[in-house]
């Protein structure tokens, strides 16, 4: 199946065919009377970095385990690259679970090669790749050490290598940045972007909304086993904007209230900007025009809601609706 998406670039209309790498339709999964996934559908385009969001217990891990062929859905379909997923497809998937672990008593190099071979690589190429990856992460000298001799951060890197070594076309990361210090998290982020450039599709499961804004192109938000929000990060932020404007006035001026157009919001600490919320029905254009007439406007910009706020509000609204 192909979705046609309309994009406007440089005032030219172009139609781009978007290949969905994963297509999940109507998946239902039940455990012991508890509905873990309630008719969930999700499309992840080829080469996309896709965020799978949701509070704890929403059903993210259940969905990820189904894609990984660890468990199976009760009903619904999972398609990979245009055909129904099979057990052999695990060779094309790299999975970094949230709860990580490796064999403590096994040597770093042996461990990576073992996991790579389980994914179907042959011994020679697995060994070659392992050496390259260890060098890239400055872990070359640790190859013959047992895993337990490594620091936690180094162990996380080893786990990352084990996830990507077989050049999977689909990468699934569950909370990849937890347990990484900022320097290592940046290195990890760079590696993920590099893998995307090399053609991998990346599925992210996370609560870390900053990382979602920073790298995800599209997201699906799951709450209480259902999809509650889906789309590109930009579109979602546009849709959820609440008409908040940051106004920067010339030195010495203060913004006058105007009940017909907007209400003043408490200003952020240490900021020269004043925040206003436009009244319902007031267009941005009208408000700017009025402000321009009445004060010495130095600058202005619209504030888009953060993914964090959208996440929290959507989940809260939904929980309210249910209660």
């Amino acid at each position: 199946m192909r979705n046609y998406e309309l994009r406007i670039t440089n005032y030219e209309l172009i139609y781009t065919a978007v290949n969905n790498f994963i297509e999940i339709s109507d998946v239902v999964k039940q455990y012991d009377g508890h509905l873990a996934l309630d008719h969930v559908s999700m499309n992840v385009p080829q080469g996309c970095i896709y965020g799978l969001l949701g509070p704890n217990g929403a059903g993210k891990t259940s969905l990820i385990r189904i894609i990984n062929r660890i468990t199976h859905q009760d009903s619904g379909t999972v398609m990979l690259d245009g055909r129904a997923i099979t057990d052999d497809d695990v060779a094309h998937i790299g999975y970094l679970p949230e709860e990580r672990g490796l064999y403590k008593k096994m040597k770093v190099g042996d461990q990576i090669v073992y996991l790579a071979r389980l994914k179907g690589m042959d011994k020679t190429s697995a060994t070659g790749e392992m050496l390259q990856w260890l060098e890239r992460f400055d872990l070359g000298e640790w190859r013959d050490k047992k895993l337990e001799a490594l620091s936690k951060g180094m162990q996380q890197k080893v786990q990352f290598i084990a996830t990507v070594i077989h050049r999977p076309r689909l990468l699934i990361f569950d909370e990849p940045f937890s347990g990484f210090d900022p320097v290592n998290a940046d290195q990890l982020k760079a590696e993920i972007l590099r893998l995307k450039q090399e053609g991998s599709t990346v599925l992210f499961s996370t609560h870390n909304m900053e990382s979602v804004e920073a790298i995800c192109e599209r997201i699906t938000l799951i709450n209480h086993s259902r999809v509650v929000l889906e789309g590109s990060v930009d579109d979602i932020r546009q849709q959820h904007k609440q008409g908040i404007l940051a106004v920067d006035l010339a030195r010495g001026e203060t913004l006058q209230p105007c009940d017909t157009l907007y209400t003043l919001l408490p200003a952020a600490m240490g900021s020269r900007e004043t925040l206003v919320r436009l009244n319902p029905g007031v267009s941005m254009h009208d408000a700017i025009a009025w402000l321009n007439d009445h004060c010495a406007l130095a600058g202005f910009h619209e504030i888009l809601p953060s993914m964090h706020d959208i996440f929290v509000n959507t989940v809260k609204d939904q929980n309210h609706g249910q209660a």
């Binding site: 660890i70 057990d87 679970p97 709860e99 990580r100 672990g101 490796l102």
Partner: peptide, 12 residues
Amino acid sequence: NRIVEVIVSSCK
């Protein structure tokens, strides 16, 4: 060790 989830994503 939690390695089991990694392993079963590669084999049965």
